[in-house]
Every structure is written in structure tokens, then in C-alpha cells.
Design a protein around this nucleic acid. Structure first.
Lengths: 147, 147
DNA sequence: TCGACATGCCTGCATATGCAGCTAATCTCG
DNA sequence: CGAGATTAGCTGCATATGCAGGCATGTCGA
């Protein structure tokens, strides 16, 4: 509709990002479904591995998500024995995450699914646009860092 | 970790898009909370208005979301009396959406919240980057259109 | 030492997301 | 007209998302 803002009209940035996230997530989820993981779960497992033994808060910060969201997302992964939480010996408030052998195996087995999804998107976008998209998103995120 | 793919390493596109969507959504939700709407709800109301009396399926297509997601997202808006669904007179399978007066009023009242969020993001990114981001996302979405 | 504040995580609540599978309505074609 | 295919939407299930508020732990100054 009308746009009384002082600047020229610009469509809702949030709607664009969310729509794109939905579409892209659907592609990854479809490829990962055969391995029993969502892209969210695959990402969590990968982050735990690459981060060592992060706390809930550290992980949430890395993944730009609310700690409560991460807490709940971990539940199905714990139930399947992919992830364990243990209180930190120095600070008993902190709970540190760790991958189990089963979690590491699930991550490795699902990697072809992730690759297939990533390739599908890269093929559809083209290499140049793929790189440009990632760069643009990284730049956006860094400029929207928490105040 | 290692990247055995034939192409050069590229981080997970999906993770980037999702993180950005979370961060951006948080900003919009924070500004809209005072008006009792989420950015999702604000977007739905806006789409209904600009689309006339769309069906569930048409709306879902526009918003790049699953029809079932839209069905459930409409529930709280119906309960508050912002939206009504009525069977199409031509095809009784189809249910058409319409804004009520209350829904239109809520949308209008919440617009300053949306503008504040949009301005916050535009200011943080800068005009050039904002326009480039939207263009990049639009391009991405169009290339990932359903097969 | 102990009270005030800060920190890390959790639960309760509400909404968001989509797949599988279902029902109802419509369409197609013999 | 009637059987089968198609279409539109819904419910059950499971996960994803984050805010408010609470509990336990830790820190620091009086």
C-alpha cells in the first residue's frame, strides 16, 4: 500500500528473509529426512563438534538463537543419545554439551544429505549468486549484532 | 571440517539464511509486541488486505509457506476477530479469507511498529546494503521456485 | 559473613513450521 | 450418470521459536 516513510519505498525486509529461510529450509529438510535429521538438528550437531564442549549460552550465541530454543531443540537429540549435557566442574550453573559416538556417527552419515541439498541450492542459484548471497547474509548478520 | 566436495568450500547456506531470519524477526517482533502482533501475524494481515479475498492456498503460495502452517497461524487471528474465513460460493472446497474492521484497525495501528523495525534494520545496514539484500533475496527466491 | 546483584539455565505459555494422511468437493471421461 | 482422479483444506504428530518469570549458583562489596 502507500508508503509515507521519508525514504523511497522498500518492501518488508523481514518478510523477504523469512520466506527465503522457509524455502531453503524445506530443501535441506527434504534431503535430510532420509537420515532422520532436520537441518536444525544437523546444524546443532555440527556446531557442537566444531565448538568443542560449548555451553548452552555459547551455542545459542553462535547460532543466533534464544537459549531456551536451543534447550528444547536439544531434547530430541538427547533422547536419541546423540548429545549429552553435563554440569561444568568449575561453574555448576553451566551445562556443557558433548557429542556421543552415536551423535558423531549420525552427523557423518547425514552429511551426504546436507551436501545434496547444498548442491541443489548452489546449482539453482549459480556459483556467483551463491557466494554473493552468503556474503550478503554474513554482512547483514554482523551489522545486526546485539547492541 | 574437511570439504571433499568438488567445488571450493562454501559454508551452509541454510544456516546463514536461518540465522539472519531469526535475528531480523526478533527485531520486528520486539517493535510489534506493543501492538499485540508478531511479524508473522502482521504479514498475514497485510497480505490478506493487499490480496483481496485470497484462499488459503493462494496465501500460502504468496508467503512461501505450507498451507497447514497458514491454517494454524490464522487461528489466533480468527479468535481475536481480525480475520474471517468463509466458503467460496463457487467452489465449496475453497475457503476465502477476509479482514474484519478490527483486523484492518489492528493492522493500521501496528504500522508504526513495523516502520520502526524496518528503519532500525535499514539504519544498521545502510541504504545500499538494504536494497542489495532485498534484491539478493528476491533473486534467490525466484530461482528456488517450486519444481 | 551475608545481602544484593549478576549469571546460566529451565519451565510455562503461546505461536510458527511442515509432513503424512484424512475428508469433502469437484472434475474427467466413458 | 457414476467411478476414479484431482483439488482444497484440515487434524495428528513432531519439532522450532522466543518471552516472562523462576531457581540455583556465583560474585562482590559492606
Amino acid at each position: 500500500m502507500d508508503d509515507p516513510a521519508p525514504q523511497p519505498a522498500l518492501p518488508c525486509i523481514c518478510a523477504r528473509v523469512r520466506r527465503t529461510a522457509r524455502r531453503v529450509s524445506q530443501i535441506y529438510d527434504r534431503h535430510l529426512a532420509a537420515f532422520g535429521l532436520t537441518i536444525s538438528q544437523f546444524g546443532i550437531l555440527g556446531q557442537i563438534r566444531s565448538a568443542g564442549s560449548p555451553s548452552i549460552g555459547e551455542m545459542a550465541g553462535r547460532m543466533v538463537m534464544d537459549p531456551t530454543t536451543l534447550t528444547r531443540s536439544l531434547r530430541p537429540l538427547q533422547q536419541r543419545g546423540y548429545v549429552v549435557l553435563a554440569a561444568d566442574s568449575q561453574d555448576r550453573r553451566t551445562r556443557r554439551l558433548a557429542l556421543t559416538e552415536a551423535g558423531l556417527a549420525a552427523l557423518r552419515q547425514a552429511r551426504p544429505g546436507w551436501s545434496a541439498a547444498q548442491d541443489e541450492v548452489r546449482l539453482a542459484l549459480g556459483e556467483e549468486a551463491s557466494v554473493a548471497l552468503v556474503a550478503r547474509l554474513d554482512d547483514t548478520l554482523s551489522r545486526l549484532s546485539p547492541p
